[in-house]
Design a protein around this nucleic acid. Structure first.
Lengths: 346, 346
DNA sequence: CTGTTAGCGCATTCAG
DNA sequence: CTGAATGCGCTAACAG
């Protein structure tokens, strides 16, 4: 292992000068800096991360959990995006397991007290999430991927989040179908009151009502719920077509359900099925879908993390006064970013 | 942040004694140990990982890559298993991006020279994999998940790997179908010469030949290739049934293809479709599948990593003399572990 | 068995 | 602008 001393010796300067070249190049004379940089390159020197972390008391590392069974089809793509953005900013990503929310809190505590991690990224926030309580209590920086649904903290600057606007995406898709002549557009959503599911459902519902494609009663007939697997998608689609044979398009809350629906359509139909997440499977089936801007999401998450590490709480730095009246999916400030997904029409 | 000194002061002993209690409890008198442990608990002390790493010159961390698009449907489950096993052994997992093999080598170099990582886990090894050459050249410990197909290094003790026996899994499934009266069993495999794909294909082929269910010519008729997406699975299934209407079962090399196949079967058929990986989708469709022992795989990977860190190269320690004649999927020694998947019959 | 000493590699004081 | 000292928190050698 080549250390800072070796470089110093090689370049004929003191270790400190080498350190300056790396961490504060401006204050070192260009000539000697050039010299040092040459030595660094020749010896292939890289600063030891542990030593630096020990000295600076900062790990430059973010932690992210992985559940036993994936939250969604895009989680690994999100991980890749996050790691890519982190890497571009000199930040490492440490992976930990999350078998439950309580387990995740244990991981927080372990990683945090060992100084392994500066900040966490969490997903799948629930109502009254105990993880958020713990993080706040211990003044532990974090960023959410996905809004903290149902909590009043949605606008709290101490609870930063980055999310993708499912309402917007589904609404755009529904409007696209309307504008292309579809009259009876069904929707297959998730059961229960998950914030994400409700948000997407509302995107369809409001677009249908706005365009006066249906009244409230008809909307109920055009709506079906399904667990997020292929079989449930098939069942829901059959049910829907059975109830309303005039349906000419079905918007699905996920690609998985869309694939289920698409595989039970009659052969000669021209009913359009659309999904959400633009997965490989949907692509192969030629289904239109809605693509989440994962890279941009990751970029914002890393940015917010960087800001947390740089200063203390920047709070609502650049956004001016807060507007509590604005609709959640319309507001965006530094700590709360809602990104628009894009339609992928096939 | 509470440090070892705080504990020492609190317990009325020297910092060294505290350290001993943690790293070598045997050499400290039970009475004082008890005392120290109480202080540790009261102060909620956790050793600083960076300081320890700096001192011991060991990171106790393994690195694993994530590709832009997932290798397989089970990669996130594998990640969870790996992190879980690592965690149980006091090992951290760092995630890095792998946009290409060359990119991954850059990551190796960065993580390694910074002292962030002791060992790597790599997947999807290819013929003459440049990553392996680099790792060997730099004496960098690693473990493969998946055999290094096509390389003579398959039995090299310096190239440890853990894999799941696809040949065995597909053979078991084929034999199960034969024993339940299926006479004309088709196979949908991947195109190209991927080791994994060939291995699974051979599992079907050899079982069919052994049971004299078909001769070589017929086997060709019962075989179809498809890219690993649903549409290709549909197409292949239709093609197969068109060519051989007497088919009564189709073994597929993946769940994705199985789902494609299953969704184009006639309604009144009793043709059985089977998949590989036991994904949620296959489960929901009621398809039989083959489950990889991911947790056990992860356990072996962590074990081998531990051994690498403990001593220098243990080589072929416990396995006795090597048997070069044994079939690859039958041999197992400390550094090369081939695990059996299990059938999930539905 | 326990306490003292030293140093892992680095970055932040301070002098020059 | 550069160099010498100091310590981040911990553990491996020793000395007691």
């Amino acid at each position: 292992m080549v250390s800072i001393k070796d470089v110093a010796k090689d370049a004929g300067v003191s270790p400190q000068t080498v350190s300056n070249c790396i961490n504060n190049p401006a204050i070192v004379k260009p000539a000697t800096r050039k010299l040092v940089e040459t030595s660094i390159a020749r010896l292939n020197y890289t600063p030891n991360a542990s030593a630096r972390r020990l000295r600076t008391q900062r790990s430059n590392t973010i932690g992210i959990g992985i559940a036993p069974v994936s939250y969604s089809q895009v989680y690994d793509r999100f991980l890749h995006a996050l790691v890519t953005e982190a890497d571009a900013n000199g930040i490492r990503v440490i992976l930990y397991k999350t078998d439950s929310q309580q387990d995740e809190i244990r991981q927080f505590d372990a990683l945090r007290s060992r100084g392994d991690v500066d900040s966490f990224v969490l997903t799948d926030t629930t109502h009254d999430d105990p993880r958020l309580a713990w993080l706040h209590e211990h003044h532990q920086p974090f960023v959410l991927f996905g809004r903290p649904w149902g909590a009043r903290i949605m606008n709290d600057p101490a609870t930063p989040w980055v999310d993708v606007d499912g309402h917007y995406g589904i609404a755009e898709m529904t409007q696209h179908l309307i504008l292309h002549g579809r009259k009876h557009i069904g929707f297959i959503g998730w059961p229960g009151i998950s914030g994400t599911g409700m948000d997407r459902y509302q995107g369809w519902r409001s677009s249908m009502l706005d365009a006066r494609m249906a009244n409230a009663d008809e909307l109920d007939q055009l709506y079906e719920e399904a667990k997020n697997d292929i079989l449930s998608g098939q069942t829901a689609c059959i049910e829907l077509l059975d109830r309303r044979p005039d349906i000419d398009a079905i918007v699905c809350v996920s690609d998985t359900l869309a694939i289920g629906a698409a595989t039970v359509l009659p052969n000669d139909t021209d009913i359009i099925i659309t999904g959400f997440d633009d997965t490989v499977s949907a692509r192969s089936m030629g289904l239109s879908s809605i693509a989440q801007p994962l890279i941009e999401s990751a970029r914002h998450i890393v940015r917010i993390t960087q800001e947390q590490l740089a200063g203390s709480a920047p709070a609502s730095a650049g956004g001016g006064p807060h507007r509590p009246g604005a609709a959640p999916h319309a507001s965006t400030d530094d700590q709360h970013v809602l990104l628009k997904p894009t339609l992928v029409i096939r």
